[in-house]
């Protein structure tokens, strides 16, 4: 593997881990709202969260470009206020991946929160626990398998994300060229087949490792729960 290929692999891992980690807190919060909340506009929120799943990725990427780009309203505000720039940076790739993986993550976590017995939560309340503590000590531990599944889905989606990323932050080697973009680039040049195949194999290995890791983690949590 060439140094350029390794850079793409490292960048992909960085983007995927950042996207997953950054979307976990809002993902859990919105999953909880959708599972337990009763408020006006809940189905609207549900639809908005699912939009990236049903829209063409290029459309999502373009929407990100016009809102988070240097001249976009949100992009301009973030740059002037906090000095955060998304356009044509790896952080922009992570943002695109996080948005694309968000519906998958929220869905998995929401289902597992819905499966937690609310009667246990009210029991914890009668024992003096504030609702936030009830969430931290009862709901969250009981829906942990769903949180892990959601994180793995988001990670996998990020590793494979192509359309939104390339539309939003382009395909700059060393900055925004993730594994799929690098494979795509190889297929566009004569004699790039060997490089494309190498990166494909790396991609398969990473995906399988992530899946295996989540299985092991889920099994350990399951074992801890039934241990006597």
């Amino acid at each position: 593997m060439t140094a350029e290929e390794w850079t793409a692999v490292r960048l992909s891992l960085l983007v995927a881990v950042t996207a997953t980690a950054a979307s976990l807190p809002p993902g859990i919060a919105i999953a909880w709202l959708l599972a337990r909340g009763r408020f006006w506009g809940k189905s609207l929120l549900d639809t908005v969260v699912h939009l990236p799943l049903i829209m063409p990725p290029v459309v999502t990427g373009y929407l990100l470009l016009i809102s988070f780009g240097r001249r976009g309203p949100i992009g301009e505000f973030l740059e002037q206020t906090f000095g955060i720039v998304f356009a044509f940076r790896w952080t922009g790739a992570a943002l695109a991946c996080a948005v694309m993986g968000f519906p998958l993550m929220v869905r998995a976590i929401r289902l597992s929160i819905e499966a937690v017995d609310t009667r246990l939560e009210s029991a914890a309340g009668t024992l003096g626990a504030h609702p936030l503590w009830v969430f931290a000590t009862i709901t969250l531990p009981l829906c942990l398998p769903g949180v892990i599944a959601g994180a793995i889905l988001s990670f996998a989606k990020s590793m494979g994300e192509f359309g939104a990323t390339i539309t939003f932050v382009s395909n700059i080697p060393g900055e925004t060229q993730t594994l799929p973009s690098a494979i795509y680039t190889f297929t566009q040049v004569p004699g790039g087949d060997a490089g494309a195949l190498r990166l494909t194999l790396v991609s398969i290995v990473i995906s399988m490792a992530a899946l295996l890791g989540s299985e092991l983690l889920a099994r350990r949590i399951g074992a801890r729960r039934v241990a006597t």
Partner: peptide, 20 residues
């Protein structure tokens, strides 16, 4: 008063122990 501030112990018909 919300339930967590009442200091009223509750033993339910289904014991509702925390499984984890």
């Amino acid at each position: 008063a919300p339930k967590h501030r009442r200091r009223v112990g509750y033993v339910f018909q289904d014991s509702r122990l925390f499984p984890h």
